[in-house]
Simulated assay, not measured.
Amino acid sequence: MPDLTYRVVIRLCRALFRVLGLRIDIDGAHHLPRTGPVVVAANHSSFIDFMVVGLVGTRRGRLIRFMAKQAVFDAPVSSQLMRGMGHIPVDRAHGETAARTAYRALQAGEVVGIYPEATIGRAFEVKDRADLRRGAAYLALCTGASVVPVAHWGVHRVLTVGGRVSLRRGTAVRVLVGEPLTRLPGEDAEGLTNRLHAVLAAMVEQLLDTYPQTPAEPGTAWWWPASRGGAAPGTQEARLLDEEARLLADAGRRGR
Results as ranks from 00 to 15, higher is better:
residue 72 V to R: 04
residue 208 L to G: 08
residue 95 G to W: 10
residue 100 R to G: 00
residue 78 S to R: 12
residue 63 L to I: 13
residue 189 A to C: 08
residue 82 M to G: 04
residue 171 T to I: 12
residue 18 R to Q: 12
residue 168 R to D: 13
residue 112 V to C: 12
residue 23 R to K: 09
residue 84 G to L: 00
residue 132 L to R: 04
residue 188 D to V: 07
residue 45 S to H: 14
residue 101 T to P: 00
residue 185 P to H: 06
residue 126 V to A: 08
residue 240 L to N: 12
residue 75 A to C: 01
residue 162 G to F: 11
residue 180 P to T: 11
residue 81 L to C: 06
residue 44 H to D: 10
residue 203 M to C: 05
residue 31 H to C: 05
residue 204 V to Q: 12
residue 72 V to G: 03
residue 133 R to G: 06
residue 106 L to H: 00
residue 203 M to H: 09
residue 209 D to C: 11
residue 184 L to S: 13
residue 186 G to P: 06
residue 63 L to P: 03
residue 127 K to P: 08
residue 255 G to K: 09
residue 162 G to T: 12
residue 89 P to Y: 06
residue 154 G to F: 02
residue 201 A to C: 06
residue 39 V to P: 07
residue 226 A to L: 13
residue 202 A to R: 08
residue 125 E to S: 04
residue 177 V to M: 01
residue 116 P to Q: 03
residue 2 P to R: 13
residue 183 R to G: 06
residue 121 G to T: 14
residue 215 P to W: 02
residue 6 Y to R: 08
residue 211 Y to K: 15
residue 192 L to E: 05
residue 182 T to R: 11
residue 234 G to N: 09
residue 202 A to I: 11
residue 214 T to Y: 10
residue 129 R to I: 14
residue 108 A to N: 06
residue 18 R to T: 14
residue 65 R to L: 05
residue 105 A to I: 03
residue 240 L to A: 15
residue 66 F to P: 01
residue 11 R to V: 14
residue 27 D to A: 15
